[in-house]
Design a protein around this nucleic acid. Sequence first.
DNA 1: ACCGGAACATACATTCATGTATGTTCGGGA
DNA 2: TCCCGAACATACATGAATGTATGTTCCGGT
Lengths: 215, 215
Amino acid sequence: MNGELEGSASRQRERHVSEARHKLIDAALASLIELGFSRTTGVEVCRRAGLTRGALNYHFPDYGNLLAAALGTAYDNLLDLPTRPRDEGPLEGWVQRAHSCIVRPDFKAIIELWLASQNDPELGATLSEAIAQGSQLFDPVFTLVDCDIELTPEAEAVYRTISEACVGLGVGRSVSGGPLAHETQVIDALLNIARDADRKISNRTKKRGADHGAH
Amino acid sequence: MNGELEGSASRQRERHVSEARHKLIDAALASLIELGFSRTTGVEVCRRAGLTRGALNYHFPDYGNLLAAALGTAYDNLLDLPTRPRDEGPLEGWVQRAHSCIVRPDFKAIIELWLASQNDPELGATLSEAIAQGSQLFDPVFTLVDCDIELTPEAEAVYRTISEACVGLGVGRSVSGGPLAHETQVIDALLNIARDADRKISNRTKKRGADHGAH
DNA sequence: ACCGGAACATACATTCATGTATGTTCGGGA
DNA sequence: TCCCGAACATACATGAATGTATGTTCCGGT
């Protein structure tokens, strides 16, 4: 209640606390990437973090919250990707963006947790918010809302097609342990599809721009 | 060695044997679909099959072989899909084919085992042949070899793009427990892409057909 | 100097899946 | 009729992960 005294005391420790927390979260994420969900256990996470189960139970009384935190970290890792120069069209940029996401090993952890949350309803309830937050990653409606890019139904279909294809490539990476032999082939095809669609959209915008007059 | 006596004796039982085997395999497949890999355990499979672990150990001393058999059954289920009328172009048909594959619940079991085989190297060795056999499902090079369809690099890229997009949709189904809201949207976009590519190929073939003369 | 709580570590009991051994049934051949 | 082996079921031991309780350290306040 009286946050004054607690604050001064706990603020000194806060770094210490979050150190162990981050260790556990990072260890969980690394284990998910290397061993998958089924082999990512409490003791395994503690082993990797160099801590004991006491620490795990202290910071994460509910094991699902650890996985939720790991999922959030994985999403953050994908969102922290360097923003590309915006020379290209929006759909072409979308291909680059989606591809740079699925290339990261964190993407495997995301897939593992996606499937696990569906297999285990209890875990699914715990992860639901984290999943909902991160499902925007491949959703053009959420991602482009702040840009001044209008989203026609046809364009949205292409956006989502690109996303799904990249998810497929990401699964292929997770399954084969490395990039599929035809990954660049598919990415090139997606780039061609994206450029075609970008051209169509650009032409339509220009036409409408002529009607509206210059800004 | 002398298969005569063994044959007459065991042939009587063969139906009985394969009954239990099939029960176990089907139970494993159902468990993979409903509970995923991590929760698909020996006792769970036996419970579903109405048998005991003695039967499981008798028919599948190596647990991985049960999963391999389940994977093979899942592939068979996908391959036994009704062949569509061939009115459409080859790429358009490929979209239909890939989509009809990922719609089946068996596809989730395949994804689960794909990931599990990568996470567990020992299991991966056991499943490798079954996986190799079934990876042809989405590989146009293997699937179209008996058809008289020639496969240009550009066409192959579109084939694989369609496949990866459908895999992405399949994962989405496995994750959300049902079809994604934009599944038909993506399929329609893929159909458009496929028809475009089919047209290009068709034109090129006609042109070359004119050079060769009629058959 | 004493105390109290945060941040862990340690220890024990339980559960669950598995490995393995042994028991049981049942049908066919001698 | 007797016996033998296939095709299971049953039972016990093991190991691993988890739930839970308790112990320990360290730091800050009084």
